[in-house]
Design a protein around this nucleic acid. Structure first.
Lengths: 236, 236
DNA sequence: AGTCATTTGTTCGTATGTATG
DNA sequence: TCATACATACGAACAAATGAC
């Protein structure tokens, strides 16, 4: 029943070994032959795994010399037990939303991967602005799979709420299956929308929501005005 | 002579055919078998070429169907370097930590409230730096109730790990009961420690950890270098 | 310098699994 | 149902770069 390819599990294994400091930057990994023997697989299978790490920039191979650790993954799980869904609240309230654009177009690579679609598949896109007390606090973009949610744009127009629009499209409940957060400097466009000086610190959030069956229904990216927003992660 | 690998020349050939409109977006390329025959090479060699195009986002393979020319790479609206590796790594432990100071003092108002103490109660304080690849990625301060954890400083000195130090003090397990996140501009001191330019965007995190009974055991504040860190929130 | 074992890179061959239409 | 087409995996051989002797 192990649906995952062998090369993928080897890649994951190596990734965590690097992340945990088993190998540090500049270190040479075991040779392909050694890794093959260790995992009991063909050398090609190990090469496939190493190729994956190289693509992610974690390792770098030098012919005749070996494979070396180039960097450590800079992705930090901040809590295994953090129940995040229905928990992200910007100072408790996000009263107002303003629709900027509603469009339908082809999914790019990152959107397709997040929503488990093929690149080029149609997606509905909701660009908007979150307001509190008349002030903009967040600039967001929600991407929905068009074939799974054909009527989402209409529902969004009426409700202006992602949750309610999803409900109207038959998604009674949904769960956040992944979220990534980082701090950045506001671009010109973002600063303009959020009424911030260019380069002001913003909180950049990328997340995927899925229905109870685990099927992704929304891929969202939000830029919060750092000065005006504190994200709170709650239990249950 | 052409020291360039065969697969590379095939990849270039296919790239120009796509660029010249020989195949347009959505079209299906010839099958791997057909391409193998056409170029007089093994199927693996063609696959290596197609893998290159797929990595560049020019084509996309669908098992059982064929290889299709991907939609034109629509520019990422917000950020380009978002990484989506499904990290199932259970422990989010940081590779390196450096102790800056270990002190004992009286709790201020916010610390007392977070730890459910009275202001002025003694607390042990651990100031440190998180490192990855020798680069500082986070500047943190952990505050512990001194009466509940009298020997925590000693344990921290030896283990350099909050988790292990708490274990040594009898806290086998603990849970994050609250986390708040916001984006800020780095202060002079923070910039110095994190080796960032002053004013660079940083991710400011405040959290409380509690033992299984809900008794707070740690109040932590961390400033992450926004450029170098992405926080990942995982569901179980 | 040059030789030589080591190590990665490329290419072929073969077989089987799995999703598509 | 079933042929097609991509995905995974094993095995073999040689080329090319490296580094140590």
């Amino acid at each position: 029943m192990s649906k995952t390819p062998v090369w993928k599990s080897i890649a994951l294994s190596l990734t965590s070994e690097i992340a945990e400091g088993r190998y540090s930057t500049g270190d040479r990994l075991p040779t392909e032959a050694q890794l093959s023997a260790k995992h009991g697989v063909n050398r090609h299978t190990v090469r496939r795994a190493l190729s994956e790490l190289a693509e992610q920039g974690l390792v770098h191979a030098r012919r005749g010399a070996g494979v070396f650790v180039a960097a450590h993954p800079t992705d930090y799980p901040i809590g295994k037990r953090v129940r995040y869904h229905k928990s992200i609240s910007a100072n408790g309230k996000m009263p107002g939303k303003k629709i900027l654009t509603l469009t339908t177009r082809a999914a790019d690579a990152s959107e397709a991967e997040a929503l488990q679609l093929e690149p080029g598949d149609p997606v509905h896109v909701y660009d908007g602005l979150s307001l509190a007390d008349g002030q903009p606090i967040g600039l967001f973009q929600s991407v929905f799979p068009a074939d799974r949610l054909p009527d989402i744009l209409e529902a969004l127009t009426e409700t202006q709420s992602v949750t309610k629009a999803l409900q109207r499209c038959g998604i009674a409940d949904y769960t956040r299956i992944s979220t990534r957060l980082t701090a950045r400097a506001a671009t010109v466009t973002q600063a303009l929308h959020l009424r911030l000086p260019e380069g002001a610190p913003v909180l950049f959030s990328v997340g995927v929501n899925a229905d109870p069956n685990g099927v992704p229904v929304e891929f969202g990216r939000t830029v919060f005005a750092g000065e005006r927003v504190t994200l709170t992660l709650n239990e249950d």
